[in-house]
Design a protein around this nucleic acid. Structure first.
Length: 198
DNA sequence: GGCCAGGTCAAAG
DNA sequence: CTTTGACATGGC
């Protein structure tokens, strides 16, 4: 629960392997809890999460997140997350420094277990390459997927996981094509049928 | 050595 | 309202 939230922060624009090291270090330092992290001296927290990059910024924001959660939700994160509805929780999370739309959605979906579709770089890239859409805002992409899928945690979870896997395996940023992607043929036809742009 | 990785925020234009 | 720069490490 808390570890998932911490991971959501740490993975911002960062390879997951670097995040795993940071999480392990946090665990080793006994910092994987809101209380522990809230009262941790900044340099110590920074040292623990160094491998995840942007460590000064993330340390400050993580600690501030913990402090505000403790202040605003003394019942504890478990109860807070259990009680909240997805849109409300998302909105509140967005009001924290360092929590943008993707981080908020990750927390809602993976930590709270409520349906809120997560949009990431892979989702946009694949969507763009497939001719699905281009230049949409985060909320635009999100609305697109949520309108097309049943609002089910498991569906959102698995769908996103598949997009991430496709993205990692085939749809790299640099390459103009979809490489050996099994959807390559489908994407190609979609792009042809829609013409250049869109 | 350069580019990239499951972003976010604040300051400019 | 859209664009741009800063933030920072580790892997290939």
């Amino acid at each position: 629960m808390f570890e998932i939230c911490a991971g959501a922060f740490l993975t911002q624009n960062t390879a997951w392997t670097n995040v795993e090291k940071a999480l392990a270090a946090l665990h080793g330092a006994g910092l994987l809890g809101p209380r522990e992290m809230a009262s941790c001296p900044l340099p110590r927290l920074e040292r623990a999460i160094r491998s995840s990059g942007y460590f000064r910024q993330k340390a400050r924001r993580l600690r501030e997140f913990c402090r505000r959660v403790l202040r605003d939700h003394p019942e504890g994160m478990e109860k807070w997350f259990a009680r909240a509805d997805a849109p409300g929780l998302r909105a509140e999370l967005l009001s924290y420094r360092g929590v943008g739309p993707e981080t908020a959605d990750s927390m809602v979906l993976y930590a709270a277990g409520k349906p809120s579709f997560v949009i990431d770089a892979y989702t946009r890239r694949i969507g763009g390459r497939a001719g699905l859409a281009r230049g949409l805002s985060y909320d635009g992409w999100k609305a697109l997927f949520e309108a097309a899928l049943p609002p089910d945690v498991k569906v959102y979870n698995e769908y996103h996981a598949l997009l991430v896997k496709l993205g990692k395996d085939f749809c790299k940023k640099g390459s103009p094509s979809c490489g050996r992607c099994p959807l390559g043929r489908i994407c190609g036809k979609l792009i042809e049928s829609r013409g250049p742009g869109r």
